[in-house]
């Protein structure tokens, strides 16, 4: 497979995952703020920005709907939902002949839908009037479209090298995003382990789980009894839940191995080593140990290792020098 194609598939997938993540966080918080809550509005929205990796040039102005609008539609902002969808679609356009027609249709219709100018005007007007219905419906629509895209990807595209690069992009993005999300909630949830939770704090914990679509899955494992340790254990170390960091890293590892065998190279030792180490460290970790140590440092270390995986993929498959390739 062409390096450029792998690159485009990878980014298409990452951008879509990012769009979905941002959308879900907005949806959860726009919903939660309607309830009476122990968390002040300022705190909630600053935490949201932190959970999105503090996008540059976005300031909290005091108006949640304005912020939601910026994070959704502002194309000046590279990580807004709209920017992500435009770039995902642009990447898919570069590899139009590599993806299935169904994939293209799904992504292209999403793009056509979100770039309709009336939609943005409507959203803006609604935001000014403080009505939350339209954003919720819209955000829901984006999430569904992304899920559908993943569905058609799995059922219409050959599960070959290209498909595996899509998996790599998705899970690497997801692992990173979940680690950043957990870091943003550290202060509220895990910083003081012995504190007795106040009145509505449970709502915020639920919000955290929902931000990773994890609430129902959590309840199946631990019942609706929410505790900070279990939440961390579930989002970080659960082996079966698709949004947990461990699951994401395991899936990433699988996809990388498949790519390695498809591209027939044994040049991948370094990549295999760092992704395997990350995967193993999550498999054998215990939540108590993590909580006894420095949680933030632990989460940052995961982010750093994800970054290292990304860079190694690049050196290996996309950005290699001709001399190395001819020698090998």
């Amino acid at each position: 497979m062409l390096s450029r194609v792998a690159d485009s598939l990878y980014w298409m997938s990452r951008y879509l995952e990012r769009a979905e993540h941002t959308t879900r966080l907005l949806d959860v918080n726009l919903n939660l703020m309607l309830d009476e809550s122990s968390t002040s509005s300022d705190h909630r929205w600053l935490r949201l920005l932190q959970a999105l990796g503090k996008p540059r040039r976005i300031k909290w102005s005091g108006d949640p709907y304005e912020l939601a609008r910026t994070l959704t539609f502002d194309t000046e902002n590279k990580s807004s939902v709209l920017s992500c969808i435009i770039r995902a679609r642009e990447n898919s356009r570069h590899v139009r002949e590599q993806i299935s027609t169904e994939q293209w249709h799904r992504l292209n219709s999403l793009y056509l839908e979100v770039t309709r100018s009336e939609l943005q005007t409507a959203m803006h007007a609604q935001a000014l009037q403080g009505s939350s219905e339209t954003p919720a419906a819209f955000l829901q629509q984006v999430m569904e479209a992304v899920h559908q895209f993943q569905g058609v990807t799995d059922s219409t595209m050959s599960h070959g090298e290209g498909w595996h690069f899509i998996q790599v992009g998705r899970y690497l993005e997801r692992a990173t995003a979940t680690a950043i999300l957990l870091e943003a909630y550290h202060e509220d949830v895990w910083a003081q382990p012995d504190r007795v939770p106040e009145g509505n704090e449970y709502l915020e914990w639920m919000g955290l789980l929902r931000s990773a679509t994890a609430f129902e899955a959590y309840c199946k494992v631990y019942t609706a009894d929410l505790t900070p340790e279990r939440i961390l254990e579930f989002l970080l170390l659960d082996a079966e839940f698709p949004h947990s960091v461990r699951f994401s890293i395991d899936s990433l590892q699988c996809a990388l191995l498949a790519i390695q065998s498809a591209s027939g190279g044994n040049r991948a030792e370094e990549l295999h080593r760092i992704s395997g180490r990350l995967s193993a460290s999550l498999a054998f970790a215990s939540v108590d140990e993590i909580l006894n140590g420095d949680v933030v440092a632990y989460l940052r270390n995961i982010q750093k290792q994800c970054q290292a995986v990304h860079e190694t993929i690049y050196h290996l498959y996309v950005d290699y020098s001709i001399q190395t390739a001819l020698a090998g």
């Binding site: 497979m1 062409l2 390096s3 450029r4 792998a6 090298e161 790519i259 498809a262 591209s263 027939g264 190279g265 498959y317 996309v318 290699y320 001709i322 390739a325 001819l326 090998g328």
Partner: peptide, 18 residues
């Protein structure tokens, strides 16, 4: 940008090398 020429031979850059 996918193609390179080395010693008068044209290659394309793929994930499994040239």
């Amino acid at each position: 940008r996918d193609l390179v020429v080395h010693d008068n031979i044209c290659y394309m850059r793929t994930t499994s090398g040239l």
